[in-house]
Design a protein around this nucleic acid. Structure first.
Length: 817
RNA sequence: GCCGCGGUGGUGAAAUUGGCAAACACGCUGGGUUUAGGACCCAGUGGGAGCAAUCCCUUGAGAGUUCGAGUCUCUCCCGCGGCACCA
């Protein structure tokens, strides 16, 4: 018979809340464990079955560590700024503050219905002025230390909506609202100098217990590359600096290419003979860039800058200079040395414009496939550049050297001659944090005609986000806030004169870059968190959330942490010591759950029909925690049967201690404890099922074994196990210490984990031929003798000579004949 | 193209890290029970041969190392995720 999950679950949720059993103890000498979920955006759709997968994992970990004697911080909050609320307001006229409030209420109710052990007294919301006051304060710290600055950068502009769009609002090169093709427009934006931290963001990854994939993504994103900056003389005084990772190919450099934005075009415009043509190309490429990026065909175009030549420093040859948009202004020096024989892009460009191709590297490996038509100085039948390493040719006195040695020698020579310098470049760009949106934290800056940009004094924070009615863009690329006269009007903090407030708001990722600090001290009015509390709780010991944040949130938070460390607010350089990503939960058939497909599973329905315990246990049992997995209601019924089975056991409990289950019980304690710590929840449940199946076979279940089963299952199914636990104990009034969730975590007896008698596998030449029951401590000699007496073994040994015997204690004996 | 992850029954998966492949669960088949069930109980369930004992084959493909490979090495194929004109 099924148990009444609705009644049981509500009852215990109320009791736990009344007892404040999961409230974090501030004054405790126990070691701390900070167990954190990535806080959700409270969307209008409510909780999705995918959300709890991660929350269940942190909840199980929190239960385990609490009961292993740790003081656990396990909080929840809301990342509630962001575009959806603003779009919703545009559509329905419901103000973001109102819709978000409603959504938070729904989310809270849903989370509470799952029985999570959060300390709700520490709940935070990024849209509360008490919270974003400190987001603004963070901005000011960055500004004061030269890490926040304003700069003109290209941004996405929709000519129809007349507004700047965030990257997320650009779908396949078009505006998500009106489908108009987006243009690149240069606009002044606030930026964070994350590039200052490229080196430590990269190096410190090594010591983090994070998924390799995530670390690899961050390394990739930061994109460190070592190379040489080489100065090419342009005759007279002028020089052009290029960056290359392949100085060994310098003899093969037959032209230079600069990005359209390169400043040398303006600097030397008087010398350029075809200035009109060059300017036209630059103008066209601006239009091209966005569309070209989308269309896969990357046709290389460019224009020679006539009237200026460069000198290749290794051989003093005069080479032409081109402007082409396949060279990016934002990477390296915005200029490259083109080596068409050994770079595919340069090769394509050279072919198109009929430029010389000089082969300088010969592959030193034998080709796997028949060799392609060889490269020649004159060009000809070959199709591809050879981009690998090899032996130098056509390189004067460097001929015969291998690429690596040549790299060093050539760069050494140039460094000595003062025409080059070894450097490191990163792909990482500074972080644009300005958003032309309403629903975000205001940027605490004012602009004074006399004094320029001035920070709002700290004591005037927060700059309150005003309530407005009209969320339509202004048409000038400003945030909707620009229409609020009252908001804009400000006093210059420096001269006291009239000033204008910044109307852009901050990227929501700024709000979520420091929230984990706030949980340590959520009500503090004087600091973002006190030094004492930061020291007590941070860094986060276990952090769980989606892999989609691998580079954005997780990189930004690391950046903030390093800044706050350098500014001496905190004493550690990494915010999240251990990180795991939950896998996606897909709809039946392995497709994404989506409203439009109508295949979304609502957790409320599952809780109502099967119970929170079933949902929690099923989501851990359905497969490996980090794998994407399809929802299967049938599979969940199996878990429900398992819980029902345990409920039924209560009629079979017996006081006498039957020891037949003893070894299995201890094995289960070991397996479940280790599995939880290793995020192998699915096999922890399997083991509990094995124990339950074994108990099911018994006529009477010893009380002690039953209590172990309940305790081990309690982090997964907290309500049912509490109910059954209290039925055994039959206390009139329940105190915190009586709860199953307050019981000390069980220890296993190492002696009882190993079986006394085991099945020894007998192999002949590696093939299993027999299995014999033996004492676990059997020696090699004994096992050999015993094996040889077996009929089946004898059959296989007949007339053969034994060459070798391999014995693995407790496992097998392999006779090689 | 580059980086990363993965490929095991009808399905989700497990395999003590080199030692019995398929635990646990779903589904299915047969039987029991029930007015009925998303109910419960029992038995079976990778493929092939055989009445059976038993034997052979099997972890994307192929090779290699080893007494022994799902696990390690190499080559290739396929799928997923991220980045992508980064010099």
């Amino acid at each position: 018979m099924a148990y009444n999950h609705e009644k049981i679950e509500k009852k215990w949720q109320r009791t736990w809340e009344k007892l404040e059993i999961f409230k974090t103890k501030q004054n405790s000498s126990k070691p701390k464990f900070y167990c954190l979920d990535m806080f959700p955006y409270p969307s209008g759709d409510g909780l999705h079955v995918g959300h709890p997968r991660g929350y269940i994992a942190t909840d199980i970990a929190s239960h385990l560590y609490r009961r292993k004697g740790h003081n656990v911080l396990h909080p929840m909050g809301w990342d509630a700024f962001g575009l959806p609320a603003e779009n919703y307001a545009l559509k329905t006229k419901v103000r973001p503050r109102i819709s978000i409030k409603k959504n938070v209420k729904t989310f809270t109710k849903q989370l509470k219905s799952l029985g999570f052990s959060y300390d709700w007294s520490r709940e935070i919301n990024t849209t509360d002025p008490e919270y974003y006051k400190w987001t603004q304060w963070m901005f000011l710290q960055l500004y004061k230390n030269g890490l926040a600055y304003r700069k003109e950068v290209p941004a996405n502009f929709c000519p129809s909506c007349k507004t700047i769009l965030a990257n997320e609002q650009v779908v396949e090169g078009k505006c998500e609202r009106c489908d108009t093709e987006v243009e690149q427009e240069k606009v002044e934006q606030w930026m964070f100098k994350i590039t200052n931290y490229a080196e430590s963001l990269l190096n410190d990854l090594d010591n983090l217990d994070w998924p390799d994939t995530t670390k690899a993504m961050q390394r990739n994103w930061i994109g460190r590359s070592e190379g040489t900056e080489i100065n090419f003389s342009l005759g007279k005084e002028n020089k052009l600096k290029v960056f290359t990772t392949r100085p060994d190919t310098l003899f093969g450099c037959t032209y230079l290419v600069i990005a359209p934005e390169h400043e040398i075009i303006t600097e030397l415009k008087s010398q350029i003979l075809n200035l009109g043509q060059v300017k036209k190309y630059i103008k066209d490429s601006k239009k091209r860039s966005e569309r070209e990026r989308i269309s896969e065909t990357k046709i290389k175009t460019g224009v020679e800058i006539k009237g200026i030549k460069a000198i290749n420093p290794v051989n003093n040859r005069e080479i032409p200079i081109f402007v082409a948009d396949y060279v990016l202004a934002s990477y390296g020096t915005g200029a490259i040395m083109a080596v068409p024989a050994h770079d595919q892009r340069d090769f394509e460009f050279a072919k198109k414009y009929n430029l010389p191709i000089i082969e300088v590297i010969k592959s030193d490996r034998k080709p796997k496939l028949p060799e392609k038509a060889p490269l020649t100085v004159t060009g000809g039948g070959f199709q591809q550049a050879y981009e690998g390493k090899g032996i130098l040719i056509n390189s004067d006195r460097f001929n015969g050297l291998d690429s690596d040695t040549a790299k060093k020698r050539i760069s050494e020579k140039l460094v000595k001659e003062n025409t080059a310098k070894d450097t490191v470049y990163y792909k990482l760009r500074d972080w644009i944090i300005s958003r032309q949106r309403y629903w975000g934290s205001p940027i605490p800056m004012v602009y004074c005609e006399q004094c320029g940009w001035q920070p709002v004094p700290e004591k005037e924070l927060p700059v309150i986000l005003p309530e407005i009615r009209d969320f339509k863009p202004t048409g000038k690329g400003d945030s909707p806030l620009a229409k609020s006269e009252k908001f804009i009007k400000a006093v210059c903090p420096k001269c006291g004169g009239r000033a204008k407030r910044e109307t852009d708001t901050m990227d929501t990722f700024v709000c979520s870059s420091w929230y984990h600090f706030r949980y340590a001290d959520p009500q503090n009015e004087k600091e973002f968190a006190s030094k004492k509390n930061l020291k007590k709780w941070l860094p986060v010991d276990l952090y769980i959330g989606g892999a989609e944040h691998a580079v954005m949130h997780l990189l930004y938070s690391r950046f903030f942490c390093k800044v706050l460390y350098d500014l001496k607010f905190i004493g550690f350089q990494e915010p999240f010591l251990k990180l795991r990503h939950q896998g996606l939960i897909l709809a039946a058939g392995g497709v994404k759950m989506s409203k439009s497909k109508g295949n979304v599973i609502n957790p409320d329905d599952i809780v109502k029909d099967f119970g929170a315990d079933t949902l929690r246990t099923y989501e851990t049992f359905m497969g490996p925690f980090t794998d994407a997995i399809a929802w299967d209601t049938k599979g969940m019924i199996g878990v429900k049967r398992f819980l029902d089975k345990i409920y039924k056991f209560k009629s079979k409990i017996h006081n006498s201690s039957n020891s037949s289950l003893n070894r299995l019980v201890h094995k289960t304690i070991k397996k479940v404890t280790e599995d939880i710590q290793n995020f192998k929840f699915n096999t922890a449940i399997s083991q509990l099922m094995i124990l339950a199946n074994e108990m099911d076979k018994q006529d009477q279940i010893p009380k002690n074994a039953y209590k172990v089963l309940l305790q081990l299952l309690s982090p997964f199914a907290p309500h049912l196990t509490e109910e059954l636990w209290q039925e055994i104990n039959q206390k009139q009034e329940i105190k915190i210490k009586d709860s199953i969730h307050s019981q000390k975590w069980l220890k296993y007896n190492p002696k009882l984990v190993l079986e006394e008698t085991i099945q020894l596998v007998v192999q002949i030449n590696g093939k299993v031929r027999d299995k014999i029951m033996v004492n676990a401590e059997i020696t090699k000699k004994e096992a050999e003798d015993l094996a040889k007496t077996q009929e089946k073994v004898q059959k296989w040994l007949e007339g053969k000579e034994i060459r070798q015997i391999i014995f693995v204690p407790r496992k097998l004996i392999n006779i090689v004949v």
